[in-house]
């Protein structure tokens, strides 16, 4: 299990960075408050850590928590938000999801007079949105990818979740970066990553694309807005013995980090988000708001990039929970 590190971001350096970004001058309390927490899913590491850390932090501060997981089903999440509104909690935290589906329902939360806080869902209805700086993430990852490609070659892009706000921002930033490099092209049509069976499906799709583009140099990079599909993609590339292709994504799934650490693997770079810190930050903002403090509209939680080059140095500093 040595390769399986669950990255929970408790490291001193990141904690220091985080404390600067969250309003928590003194220990706040949620004693006697009811907090509704709803997420579109909690079946991959990023979503699970957002959700569980928000629940844990709210309970630690003394709140009664109504926590609802929609299991990737938009209809269920909408029903759950509607149910939460009827419960009239003191605040609602909404995590991830499809913005087109959510926006009208989040507006209803606001209309009902319930303060809304979100993680990774940028919406005008929210009192505060906690997110990584996805603009920075998208740009940093794309620049690293273009640099590794020597500003030349074709990118296979997985773009199945453009309706999820952080994915949209990271994708748009990636396209903006490569628009300045005329020799870098995106292979059309783009691929679609899916939920569930994300890694398995990406493995099969990549195997097909490697057959379709059989020569070295046909594909130089594979990009996705998260890293679960890239686990399958990288396994397919490594399994086929193809060289000259690197994979790039976001989140910091244990398996993908292990692949970046492996010099022989195609995994190129991953931007790691402070997933636990983001869940905590949202709850801290709820507590601050309910205590009458002013809360900023956005809380950006720091991220860092792990690459083949800095892996040996950075990965050991990431705390492990096994």
């Amino acid at each position: 299990m040595s390769g399986l590190k669950i990255l929970a971001f408790g490291g001193a350096a990141f904690a220091a960075m985080l404390s600067a970004s969250v309003t928590m001058a003194e220990e706040l309390s949620l004693e006697g408050k009811v907090i509704g927490i709803t997420t579109i899913r909690s079946d991959n590491q990023a979503d699970r850590l957002f959700y569980q850390s928000a629940i844990a932090e709210a309970e630690r501060l003394g709140a009664e928590v109504i926590a609802l997981d929609a299991q990737s089903n938009d209809q269920t999440q909408v029903s759950q938000i509607q149910t939460l509104i009827a419960q009239k909690p003191d605040a609602i935290i909404e995590i991830l999801g499809n913005i087109e589906v959510l926006n009208p329902w989040l507006a209803r939360v606001k209309e009902a007079g319930i303060p809304l806080f979100t993680i990774d869902t940028t919406t005008p209805s929210a009192t505060n949105v906690v997110a990584s700086d996805n603009y920075g993430i998208g740009e940093q990852l794309a620049l690293k990818m273009v640099a590794d490609m020597n500003a030349k070659g074709n990118i296979l892009v997985f773009n199945g979740f453009y309706s999820v706000p952080p994915c949209k921002i990271r994708y748009d930033q990636m396209k903006y970066v490569i628009s300045n490099f005329p020799d870098v092209k995106v292979i059309e049509p783009e691929m679609r990553d899916v939920i569930p069976n994300t890694a398995q499906r990406a493995y099969a799709d990549t195997s097909d694309m490697l057959t379709k583009y059989p020569n070295e140099g046909d594909i130089s990079a594979v990009w996705a807005c998260w890293d679960v599909p890239l686990i399958g993609v990288t396994q397919a590339i490594d399994g086929a013995g193809r060289t000259g292709i690197r994979t790039y994504g976001v989140d910091g799934s244990a398996d993908f980090i292990a692949m970046i650490e492996d010099p022989a693997s195609a995994a190129g770079a991953v931007v790691i988000q402070d997933l636990v810190g983001m869940g905590k930050a949202s709850v801290q903002n709820v507590a601050a708001h309910l205590a009458g403090q002013k809360v900023p509209p956005f809380t950006y939680v720091p991220h860092l990039i792990v690459t083949k080059e800095n892996a040996a140095e950075v990965i050991p500093t990431l705390p492990s929970t096994d």
Partner: peptide, 16 residues
């Protein structure tokens, strides 16, 4: 009715 309620067509309708 579903599209109206969700302002969109979504995946996973088969789960119904």
């Amino acid at each position: 009715l579903l599209v109206a309620r969700l302002s969109a067509s979504t995946t996973a309708t088969g789960q119904l």
